[in-house]
């Protein structure tokens, strides 16, 4: 399978006043196209930092991040925005829907950023909302929906632009266990259906079970890579 993400010896060091905090310390791995990959670690393990680096929201202190063959650390902010607009979808822990917009408008927003005309956007958004089971809530605003419903809108928004990679940062962190299963089924179902690469960051081991590959991360270092289809990756120091 084709490699879509290639991380080579990446470190990220934050300076907090005089103190240096090492968030990532020489991390390397690859993710294949169409793979569902889960970063599993506790809070402060560096997993969120890793996601931010891959999404181009932050630059690494050291190392190389290659996505679709493009060196992310070399892009400027404008190029990064366009890159995200074209290739990346996001699901957030706290949904991050725009409160002024309806479910449909929220879902179609990434398409609006691309300058796609309204009628095409609306059609796409409607079909995605129907796919996540919110066909009856098209005109609802975020504050008129439950957490589960909001997150389903969030999922629809992440997939609406057919991005090649979808990042999900603790997508079920704010949901109860029943809705968690619903939402995870939808996310992984969609990703598999379209052959999209899905990267989930979580601390919840039950979420990790949905992934093809689990990358255990602790104190900024990858502990082990585990393949859920039985293969066991070696421990990486």
């Amino acid at each position: 399978m084709d490699t879509i993400i290639e991380i080579k010896d990446v470190s990220k060091i934050y300076k907090l006043g005089e103190e240096r905090v090492v968030a990532l310390n020489g991390v390397s791995f690859v993710i294949d196209k169409g793979e569902i990959c889960c970063f599993l670690g506790t809070s402060g393990s560096g997993k969120s930092t890793l996601l931010n680096l891959m999404a181009g929201l932050e630059k690494p202190t050291r190392g190389q991040i290659k996505i679709k063959g493009i060196n992310m650390e070399k892009l400027n902010e404008r190029q990064l925005v366009l890159f995200r607009q074209r290739y990346i979808g996001f699901v957030f822990q706290s949904y991050n829907l725009l409160p002024t917009l309806t479910a449909m408008e929220n879902v179609s927003m990434p398409l609006a950023f691309r300058g796609i005309p309204r009628n095409i956007r609306d059609k796409r958004a409607r079909s995605l909302l129907e796919a996540v089971g919110l066909g009856t809530h098209l005109m609802h605003r975020p504050n008129q929906m439950s957490g589960g419903q909001q997150q389903r809108v969030g999922v629809a928004r992440a997939f609406v632009g057919k991005p090649e990679i979808v990042f999900a940062d603790e997508p079920t962190g704010n949901l109860d266990s029943k809705t968690t299963i619903e939402v995870m089924d939808i996310i992984t179902g969609m990703a598999r259906q379209n052959g999209q690469t899905l990267i989930i960051v979580t601390h919840d081991i039950s979420i990790a079970e949905y992934a093809d590959k689990i990358i255990h991360i602790k104190d900024g270092i990858i502990q082990s890579i585990e393949y859920t289809n039985g293969e066991e990756g070696g421990s990486l120091a």
Binding site: E77, V81, Q85, F90, N96, L98
Partner: peptide, 14 residues
């Protein structure tokens, strides 16, 4: 702030 951030992450041009 949050909304603006979300829009940037989702690819809204500056």
């Amino acid at each position: 702030t949050r909304e603006i951030g979300v829009m940037k992450v989702l690819g809204c041009e500056l």
